[in-house]
Design a protein around this nucleic acid. Sequence first.
DNA 1: ATATAATGTGTTTAATTTACACATTAAAAC
DNA 2: GTTTTAATGTGTAAATTAAACACATTATAT
Lengths: 246, 246
Amino acid sequence: MANEDSLKLLQPVKTLETIQSEVENTNRIALSVDCVIFGFDENKLKVLLIRSDLKKFLGKWSLLGDLVFPKEDLDAAADRILKQRTGLSDVYLEQVHTFGNVSRHPAGRVVTVAYCSLINVQHHKLNILDNELHWHDVKNVSSLAFDHHEIFDTCLKQLQKRVQEHPLGFNLLPKKFSLRELQNLYEAILDIKMDRRNFRKKFFSMDFLIDLKEMEQDVPHRPGKLYKFNYEKYEKKKKRMVGIDF
Amino acid sequence: MANEDSLKLLQPVKTLETIQSEVENTNRIALSVDCVIFGFDENKLKVLLIRSDLKKFLGKWSLLGDLVFPKEDLDAAADRILKQRTGLSDVYLEQVHTFGNVSRHPAGRVVTVAYCSLINVQHHKLNILDNELHWHDVKNVSSLAFDHHEIFDTCLKQLQKRVQEHPLGFNLLPKKFSLRELQNLYEAILDIKMDRRNFRKKFFSMDFLIDLKEMEQDVPHRPGKLYKFNYEKYEKKKKRMVGIDF
DNA sequence: ATATAATGTGTTTAATTTACACATTAAAAC
DNA sequence: GTTTTAATGTGTAAATTAAACACATTATAT
């Protein structure tokens, strides 16, 4: 039951005309997308950053971002921005979180939607312009512009969580990979050490790896077998969802 | 290495002046928040909807939403909108996802950020105005306005996932609850049946329940013991993060 | 007083996860 | 070409966790 005090707080649902007026006039905000692109190279998890040339942030690094156009779908904006900055297209892009503090950006009110992507550093050749783009070791990321460190942290944590629930990690590897490379990847993302035998057992028991009957080439040690991931088989399997665990 | 073709795609990083111009002029978009409020009553998971009075959506139900003000933090907007629509404050609100298709809203381009909240139907008395607000059984939600069904689905799935990883569910129950009520809650959220003995064992072994040495009152059967959740103890425990499982 | 319907409790089995050691192979060093 | 080195490749036992399952107890309702 509403008392008089609380009724003051309430506001009737708006009419379409009211909303249209607000949408067209006073209540508009700049919206941007920032892409956090992860890669894997030299057994290290990397993130792709661009040098900021805003005076205020000279010498700092930024995520790959730009404003969303008024007539552009949000997901399409993420694709466009990634392509504009790197030349990459057809990349798995996942929305992670939206950051909307009033004073997060020096140019005014800009709400930004963070997207995360994982790419293969070797196979996707980047269009690196004037050395502006650079792969940074995630363990060594510092002095990012704006609130980009918070965005980066959020995406890294999300990656660490998702990579344990879905086979995302394979996007970071070559199509053909050894089990050692796979384990190195997980150890780099999760920042832990794993038991080699249990790791192998785990992946073999999942039965999503296809033995390519090939061996590693040009490695400075005994070559390991090469595998590829069986996405089709994975798609068919349904996951058990239940299990309370906190 | 960038070749000539790919260079066309690239775009230099903008200056602060360019961005400021865009932020202030052409590239602004209306931004809204929609709140998906879950409750639990009569052993059923419910969602709070408001009757839409837009002509185009007459008779349909909507999520609780409104536009974000230009000088308002995003999270603060969610709090305000929930309070305006329901009178509720100090509620756990979690951002879930941002929906940004160009034509998702009839009033023009409106990008919306979905927030999710869980409240206790009994303890939080809503300011229900002219019967506009109504608790709907989640199993029975249909013909929502705009893309609100997609938003609702996304939030429900998120809830089902989160409730297994974090003790969110307790926000839906009275402070004192019986184990049967707790199990009913989980069964309603996850839409499954669980073994009563294993369920009890699970929660007792987690050791986050405090036995209040009280019994249920006014139940039409043998009263069960009442418990409360030990949030402090929970906060202290750290979770094992590792475990690849897909 | 009886019937009913829910609470409360343990054990056994299966499945999963963890810990752990040695033979094999190819490259590198000599 | 022999030896050394460093990684690959494999199995088993123990511990932990999850799943299946039945009966006595208690308060309410009849």
